[in-house]
Design a protein around this nucleic acid. Structure first.
Length: 233
DNA sequence: ACCCAGGGTCATA
DNA sequence: TATGACCATGGG
């Protein structure tokens, strides 16, 4: 299906319109330059710290890790858990996340870090990431896509909400079903997956919000199945 | 004083 | 397999 860059979509959507949704969002917002992180390792740390947490809180934690010279796998793996917890405190769940970071870094070092892991096939790397305690499907896919440039589509709460409101899904599909939907419909494409997920986050944060969505003026409004969108108050 | 935010694990039934 | 409790800080 042809894209309609710069225009408002006007028909109810099916799953085959995922490409057009991307093009419409890109025309609206422009490239998002994701993931916000200086290095691949910082992306991995950020992916764990942002679990169920606002990104602004993660930025503080990253700053504190840098200031304490702890933003490297050796320092995190060998840090005192209480010290590490204090550094990442702003992200919430800091006791659990400190353990998750340490478990991840121990695996990362044992596996020879990024250089060695880059040689591993995507399916095998994904399986290993999921075996690390505290890394579930979304965190694994964040790392695969944004730190290892693998063609894996990230499904998060924003993606679920947007697809359900558009009428493409019901909202209760399992993670793997939604990931397969995007990957099979769009075809493996790292640059596209990277940009699309970033655009979904941008759109869901600033317009397709959980409550009080700003449907008036939305580029997807004409084709969206969401009923009674609350406009700006 | 709520509700929400770029989840995941574990214990139950 | 499917729900619920739990983890915890910061902004609106």
């Amino acid at each position: 299906m042809a894209s309609n860059r710069g225009q408002t979509m006007t028909k109810p959507l099916s799953r085959h319109d995922l490409r057009t949704v991307h093009d419409t969002l890109l025309a609206c917002y422009g490239p998002q330059h994701w993931w916000p992180g200086e290095t691949p390792f910082e992306v991995m740390v950020g992916a764990i710290l942002t679990q169920n947490t606002a990104w602004s809180n993660v930025e503080r934690a990253i700053q504190q890790l840098v200031a304490a010279n702890h933003l490297n796998p050796e320092a995190i793996a060998t840090a005192d858990p209480t010290t590490l917890g204090a550094l990442i405190r702003p992200t919430g769940y800091f006791n659990i996340k400190a353990r998750r970071l340490q478990g991840f870094c121990q695996w990362y070092l044992a596996r020879g870090q990024r250089e060695a892991l880059m040689e591993m096939p995507t399916v095998a790397l994904r399986r290993e990431l999921l075996a690390v305690k505290g890394i579930g499907p979304e965190t694994a896919d964040d790392i695969l896509l944004y730190a290892f440039a693998r063609p894996v589509f990230v499904i998060d709460a924003y993606t679920r909400r947007l697809l359900a409101r558009l009428g493409i899904t019901r909202g209760d599909e399992p993670y793997e079903a939604l990931r397969a939907l995007f990957e099979e419909t769009l075809g493996a494409n790292v640059a596209l997956f990277n940009e699309y997920h970033a655009l979904i986050v941008r759109h869901a944060k600033e317009r397709c919000r959980k409550r009080q969505a700003l449907c008036e003026g939305c580029v997807l409004a004409a084709c969206c199945q969401k009923e009674e969108g609350i406009t700006a108050s």
